[in-house]
Simulated scan of single mutants.
Amino acid sequence: MTADTADFRRSKEHRAKTYNGYFFLIGLPILWLLSYWLVGSAIPGLDNPGKAGKVLFVFTLAGTAIVNFIFLFGFFMVQPNQTRVITLFGSYAGTERTEGLRWIWPWMGKQKVSARAHNIHSERVKINDKRGNPIDVACNVVWRVRDTAQAVFDVDDFKEFVNIQIEAGLRTVGARHPYDDFEEGETTLRGSPDVVNGELQTELNERLAVAGIVVDEAGLTHLAYASEIAGAMLRRQQADAVIAARKKVVLGAVGMVEDALEKLSRDGIVELDDERRAAMVSNLMVVLCGDRDTQPVVNAGTLYQ
Rank of each mutant, 00 (worst) to 15 (best):
A16R: 13
G21W: 10
Y22K: 12
L25W: 07
G27P: 00
L38N: 05
L38A: 07
G40R: 06
P44D: 02
D47L: 14
V55Y: 06
F57W: 09
T60P: 08
T64K: 11
F71E: 03
F75H: 08
V85C: 13
S91D: 06
T95Y: 02
T95P: 14
R97P: 04
G100S: 02
G100N: 05
G100D: 05
L101F: 10
W105Q: 01
M108V: 04
G109H: 01
V125T: 12
G132N: 07
V137S: 04
V141K: 07
R144C: 02
V145K: 05
F158R: 08
F158K: 09
K159P: 02
E160K: 15
E167L: 15
R171F: 11
A175H: 07
R176C: 03
E184I: 10
R190I: 11
R190K: 15
V196I: 12
T202N: 15
L208E: 05
I213M: 02
Q238T: 06
K247L: 10
A253Q: 06
V257I: 14
I269V: 13
I269S: 11
I269E: 08
D274G: 07
R276G: 06
R277G: 00
L284D: 02
M285P: 00
L288W: 07
D291Q: 13
P296L: 10
G301M: 05
Q305Y: 01
